[in-house]
Nucleic acid binder design. Structure first.
Lengths: 112, 112
DNA sequence: CATTTCATTAGGCATTTACCTAAGTATCAG
DNA sequence: CTGATACTTAGGTAAATGCCTAATGAAATG
């Protein structure tokens, strides 16, 4: 399997969980420390850390540790790549559907 | 958990597997019977069926059976919804980053 | 320096996922 | 009606996922 595909696997998998999506949503507003990020979730910290590791492995966020606090920030490139994938395939579908519309129009015109 | 979120869970999960993404890619070119769709994959048919059921449960495709053949077609609404989610959060991030750019420009201007 | 705080590691558990083979069921073709 | 074709169901396995508690590390603070 090409590496690019594995990357999409990881990105879409990371986004398939609402806890992780909420983290992405909060990080869109700026870099945030782990404890602060975790606070809204009713979840043990080690469980939350696992989610952060999934996001980091997918390349959706990165983190750096200063003293004892780890600060996460969003890294948008992979989000953009995933969006491109969707956009590309949606547009192929739309092009096909437009052809179908044309065909319907053609039918109507030929049978007025 | 709100229903909308569960739906995003299912859509992103469905897209997190390259076999399923390839199916979406092929279906973008038109409705296709199951056996035809399965043919490129080195996989037992029951395994392939499971993938199709994941895609269908996510609302990314629908299917109808005529005689003994089941034909799948793409159903783009959920793909669009997922794209919207990504677009929304990407734009929040971009807005924030633009503020940061402005701040950098401001710094440069105040220290020429 | 003792304590608290923030983060991590280790280990365990139930469920889901991604595959498989074997054995159906239903339709079509001759 | 008989065989081939197209799918479906049933049941099994190994690995991954999503959660937990308990224990440990390592930095900050009184």
């Amino acid at each position: 399997m090409p590496n690019e595909m594995q990357q999409l696997d990881r990105v879409f998998h990371a986004l398939s969980n609402s806890t992780r999506r909420e983290v992405i949503a909060r990080l869109a507003e700026g870099p945030t420390a782990m404890t602060v990020l975790a606070e809204p979730f009713n979840m043990a910290l080690p469980s939350f850390l696992q989610h952060m590791q999934v996001l980091e492995a997918a390349g959706l966020v990165n983190s750096s540790k200063t003293g004892r606090t780890r600060v996460y920030q969003i890294q948008p490139q992979q989000l953009i790549e995933a969006e491109h994938w969707m956009d590309k395939h949606r547009s192929i579908w739309e092009a096909r559907l437009n052809q179908f519309d044309d065909f319907v129009i053609l039918l109507k015109e030929s049978n007025p």
